[in-house]
Amino acid sequence: MSFGPFLLLAVLEGTVMAAVLALTSVGLSLVFGVMRVVNVAHGEFYMLGAILAWFVTYYLPFPPALAWVAALIIAPLVVAAIAALADTFVLKRLNYAPEATIVATIGLLYMVQQAALTIYGPDARPVAAPFEWRIQLPWFGYSGYKLFVVGAAGVILAAVWLFMTRSTAGLVMRATQIDRDTAQCFGINVDRVYAGTFALGAALAAAAAVLIVPIQQAHYLMGHDPLLLSFIVVIIGGLGSIRGTLVAALVIGLSDGIISMFFSPTLAKIIATLLVALVLVFRPQGLFGARA
């Protein structure tokens, strides 16, 4: 393949990956930003979203497009409810102590994963995309649905951004993020803010999964890789900064495709992982670390 089309494909794939990364990371970033909680179970909320999408599309007697839309509504709601319960019964009782919550969310990770294995089983199962549309270019074909994912990611992220900056709930969340105690003095119910934030973060992960599952498959171990990748994005972007997270997703998504063309992909992953560690050591505010 000549260089032009090669680059075009790399850019297309990079953009899709950036959208996927941004979708999976923004919830993690939000939770860390407002609650200062590193949610190791984030990837499992993502997995739950994908599996629920499978259940919904499999059992609802709708045409694929409608069933998928139903999944996009139902899965995030269910996952948000589970997350809110986890927050109320576990994280809150730990007073959100950072280290205890990491241990607790590791525990949640195992519980959710194994529950999925018991209920859903070990198979990877496909979820039909809401539409089948293949773009045939002169050099290669490309999935039209993947481009739709990019657009949908843009819409969701814009909605989150508007919610955080324009709505009262967003204002309350930002106030809690900046100073929890003062917020409490102004009559903000911090417990509810925290539960809501945790649920929102989980819902975002689930929504991302419903969007992504037609181009992958629903599998009970699928939460592991998005978790690591989200960590990488959130750290490079600056923990807790939503804008930084988006920039980082774009940079990593676009560069990853190109880097792995030149190095062995495993080597590329090693370098990326070490880079993340070094960024945390030498630039803890992240590479794009404007505070959100």
Partner: peptide
């Protein structure tokens, strides 16, 4: 060679 952790493969195909 595709790393076993990969979940998307299109970018390997131009090779």
């Amino acid at each position: 060679a595709v790393p076993p952790t990969e979940t998307s493969f299109t970018r390997y195909l131009p090779q």
